[in-house]
Amino acid sequence: MQGEVVEVTLRSLYISGSATLLASAWSIPLAYLMASRPRWRGLASALEALVGVPTVLVGLALYMLLSRRGPLGFLGLLYTPQAIIVGEAILITPLIASVAYRALRHAVENYGELALSLGATEAQAMATAVREAAGGILAAAVMGFSRAVGELGVALMVGGNIKGYTRTMTTTIALDVAMGEFEEAMALGAILVLLLIGVSMTIRFIAGGAVAK
């Protein structure tokens, strides 16, 4: 029992952490594009609207793609932790991109354009804006991580809740509830919440200087 708790906790950290890094890798550049190019701005409201998209819907769509009969079935990704990583990365993209966009927009207007007018290259201007908006971008990533750890639909649909392989904290909680193990579910839920707060505070503490303002 205790071994299993440690195991699913580590697996959830690995899966959701990877998903957050993956999603950040494309969401933050996307947020910068939206902040610096007026033509991309319309996308921002669409992404904001998609923040609350039901997790089970993303899970189902991805399942249809990854199913052995689906168009991406040949990848053999269904029922693997990697499938959950991809699904969660897609799920949290709107959240990370739209929160990072808000932070970046301000920074681009105040510092990026100033840097450009002082003769900086586009890349330098972007670096300046990203540096100035670091706190907001970090907050976006932490929020994305939180949603990834806490989501159930994707992990259940494409992971399959396989014991010792794709079972995460939330799928364990759901199974415990279905089995009537309410105490175990609550205990694991408490660990999940503590973990989220711990990760958030650790990142804030380490990056303290950047986030202070």
Partner: peptide, 12 residues
Amino acid sequence: LAILVMAGGLFY
């Protein structure tokens, strides 16, 4: 963050 992720990955 990367170390946490890798620890999980190795464990898995």
